[in-house]
Amino acid sequence: MTHLPAIQLYTVREAMAEDRASTLRQLADMGYGAIEVHRPTDDPAGLRALIEDLGLKVCAAHAGDAVGNPEPGPVFEAIASLGTDLAVVPGGRPKEDRSTRDGIERIADEVNRLLPYAQAAGLRLGYHNHDHELTRIDGQYALDRLLDQVDDEMFLEVDTYWAAAGGADVLELLGRYGDRVKVLHLKDGPGVRGPANVALGEGSLAVAEYVAAAPYAWRVVEFDKCETDIFDAVARSHDYLARLAS
């Protein structure tokens, strides 16, 4: 059974800042069944009340505020209070840390440091890639080197757009990582850094193939930036995913 389409709230961050309740209602009315939270410590109790009233679920939440934080426990407690069991480290490190041998070791140390805090809150800890982690170090992706150095319990949130922009064979990655991939970030566009994203199915990425390669992962729509009406693009992206599932 596949998951319902979800959306990363970073996509509609400006609208959320203006009117959180109205924004969430628009997303629910489009048919989104779940959200991924990018700022879980911003009134988690109030956010959970809103999403429950709308019949939404929280599929995962980003734990960026935990990175480098000497007291990360409250971040993970806030995530757990939202009703999800997946907490994601969204990069949060300089490019050189994500594309060099020494940098990857520093990230691995940080992920391993955070893991017991996440587990104490009843959460699984995952990692979100950008393009830098698909740099090759001694013939091996930096992301692979990271996985070699972290606890086997760490899952992956694979950002398919950034993986493609980094030069990776995304289908090969998804096939090799298998059920360690719990969340897919789905974006479309030209597949390179810089240009705005477009609605799913309207760019150059093989989104349908990515979804088929990870059938049990959450399918999370995300736009880093959009040059058209964001809600129209988000609605078209939802409809595209719904057609894939039909």
Rank of each mutant, 00 (worst) to 15 (best):
M1Q: 11
T2E: 11
T2D: 11
H3G: 12
L4K: 14
P5M: 02
P5Q: 04
A6G: 15
A6R: 03
L9D: 12
Y10G: 03
T11W: 06
E14M: 09
M16H: 09
E18N: 13
E18M: 13
E18V: 14
A21E: 14
L24I: 03
R25N: 10
L27N: 02
A28W: 04
D29C: 09
G31Q: 08
A34P: 01
I35G: 04
H38V: 14
P40E: 06
D43K: 08
L47N: 01
A49H: 10
L56A: 01
K57A: 15
V58N: 05
A63C: 06
V67G: 01
P74A: 08
E77L: 11
E77C: 01
E77M: 04
A78P: 09
A78R: 02
I79L: 08
T84I: 10
A87K: 00
V88P: 06
V89E: 10
G92N: 09
R98G: 07
S99D: 13
T100F: 06
D102Q: 14
G103W: 02
I104M: 07
I104D: 09
V111M: 14
N112D: 08
L114M: 07
Q119F: 02
L123T: 04
R124F: 05
R124I: 00
L125A: 01
L125S: 05
G126L: 07
H128V: 09
N129F: 04
D131H: 14
D131A: 15
E133C: 03
L134Y: 14
D138I: 07
D138S: 12
D138T: 03
Y141E: 04
L143N: 04
R145H: 13
L146H: 00
D151W: 06
E153C: 01
E153H: 13
E157F: 04
D159I: 11
T160M: 05
W162A: 06
A163R: 05
A164G: 08
A165T: 09
G167N: 10
A168G: 08
L171E: 13
L173H: 04
G175C: 03
D179K: 13
V181W: 07
V181S: 11
L184Y: 11
P190E: 15
V192M: 13
G201S: 06
G201V: 00
E202D: 14
E209F: 00
Y210V: 00
A213M: 00
Y216T: 10
A217S: 14
A217I: 00
W218L: 01
V221F: 08
D224T: 08
D224Y: 04
D224G: 08
C226K: 06
C226A: 12
E227C: 00
T228V: 09
T228W: 00
I230R: 07
A233S: 13
V234M: 04
V234S: 12
A235F: 12
H238C: 01
D239Y: 07
D239F: 05
Y240K: 05
Y240S: 05
A242S: 11
L244F: 05
L244E: 05
A245R: 11
